[in-house]
């Protein structure tokens, strides 16, 4: 047996998994998406994304995902740069500290945020002690953004951290040697070299944050409707399998079109450019 064939054999469990839990469900959803409840072919389900309620939810989701991704990026870089300055043992400590919440269940973390942000929650308790006015963040879009950002932050920070920590000290010293200050070293050397990490961070944060309906339900109090909430409602509450599938498919098509644009950009950065 050739080694290539052996490789196929070893990947059999994964192939079985993919077929059972990705390909078959995808085929089922696609079938539902393009048919009506009576089984006739139709494009109505897929095009339903264009109607007012669905379209609005879609745009809100895009906005939430954009803000959350941006916040994650803006929080991740200073964090990564601070860790880079630390010695090895303390940076390992900080990383574990960051990853620790990821071992907790996702719903539990969101419920914890609900306790912190609710009108009589921990945050307002502290504000009252300090003699400051209460804030009413619970059940607003701001709470959704806080929750989503918190949830996906590690997925943004870790790939950026990996990319930045692979940059050798020699390279940043060379930039400094050639006259770059702290900001110049970051913008001209560290940031461009971290782009592969940034792009994998974006793909891991942007798409899931568009559809995190559980966060919108728990922290947004159902007032903020993400496209994920609508799809969930079609399936779970209205049993509109065809419409839910249609919306899923059109969302997926949107992702497939936009993602290569982002990832393609990272490829271009590595090529040669003129001055």
């Amino acid at each position: 047996m050739t080694s290539e064939k052996k490789g196929w054999g070893l990947s059999f469990p994964f192939i079985l998994w993919s077929v059972g839990f990705t390909l078959i469900p995808l085929a089922v959803i696609t079938r539902y998406a393009f048919t009506d409840p009576d089984g006739g072919l139709t494009l109505d389900n897929v095009l339903a994304m264009g109607n007012r309620i669905n379209g609005q939810a879609f745009l809100v989701s895009l906005l939430v995902a954009f803000i959350c991704t941006l916040l994650c990026v803006l929080l991740a870089y200073p964090m990564v740069m601070a860790i880079r300055r630390l010695n090895l043992s303390s940076s390992a400590f900080i990383l574990i500290f960051l990853i620790l919440p990821m071992w907790m269940n996702f719903i539990l973390r969101i419920l914890a945020w609900q306790m912190i942000l609710s009108d009589n929650g921990i945050l307002n308790h502290f504000l009252t002690i300090l003699g400051l006015p209460k804030v009413f963040i619970a059940n607003t879009w701001l709470a959704v953004i806080i929750g989503v950002t918190y949830d996906y932050f590690p997925y943004m920070m870790l790939p950026i951290y990996t990319a930045v920590s692979a940059i050798e000290k020699d390279i940043t010293e060379a930039a400094r040697d050639l006259g770059a200050g702290t900001l110049g070293v970051f913008t001209r050397v560290i940031f461009p070299l971290s782009l592969p990490g940034l792009f994998s961070g974006i793909t891991m944060v942007f798409v899931p944050s568009m559809t995190s309906f559980a966060v919108a339900d728990i922290l947004g109090g159902g007032k903020t409707q993400l496209i994920g909430n609508i799809i969930e409602q079609e399936f779970m509450r209205s049993s509109e399998m065809n419409l839910g599938s249609g919306l899923s498919i059109s969302l997926m098509i949107f992702m497939l079109i936009t993602l290569p644009v982002t990832v393609g950009r990272s490829g271009k950065e590595e090529g040669s450019r003129d001055i």
Binding site: D170, I171, A174, L193
Partner: peptide, 13 residues
């Protein structure tokens, strides 16, 4: 003052 580093330290990008 400028330095030529032992491992070149060219900017790979």
């Amino acid at each position: 003052i400028n330095t030529v580093f032992q491992k070149y330290a060219l900017f790979p990008h």
